[in-house]
């Protein structure tokens, strides 16, 4: 049975919005980080859904790339989190505001 494409779209939009909200509203950097991952995956979900819907492989292949990039980004991102924690003893993003003009 086929789940209509709209459902995928809705779910994906939901996930993405949650991610955005997480990034914008949460202060713990790790949560923020996870929210970013959430947005990634929302996008991935949509890719796969559309790929299947159109019987093409492009979207699915693309997801692999996104996942590899995401993996790399996680590595870098976690390193940044570590560095931040080391220098500020905190994971609160609002404490990292030295760029304030």
């Amino acid at each position: 049975m086929d789940v209509p494409i709209q459902y995928y779209g809705l779910l994906s939009a939901l996930l993405f919005s949650m991610g955005v909200a997480g990034v914008l509203l949460r202060r713990n950097i790790i949560i923020v980080f996870m929210s970013i991952e959430l947005m990634f995956n929302a996008a991935n979900l949509l890719f796969v859904a559309f790929a299947r819907h159109q019987n093409g492989l492009d979207g699915q292949v693309f997801v692999f790339f996104v996942m590899t990039v995401a993996a790399a980004e996680v590595a870098v991102g976690l390193a940044l989190v570590m560095a931040l924690f080391r220098s500020k003893q905190t994971t609160d993003v609002d404490d990292a505001s030295t760029l304030k003009g």
């Binding site: 990034v23 993003v93 003009g101």
Partner: peptide, 18 residues
């Protein structure tokens, strides 16, 4: 004046991106 925009909060920048 312009400086006010630079809050230094990542969320803020993200919001502007959004």
């Amino acid at each position: 004046v312009f400086r006010q925009v630079q809050t230094g909060y990542v969320r803020n920048y993200a919001l502007w991106m959004l």
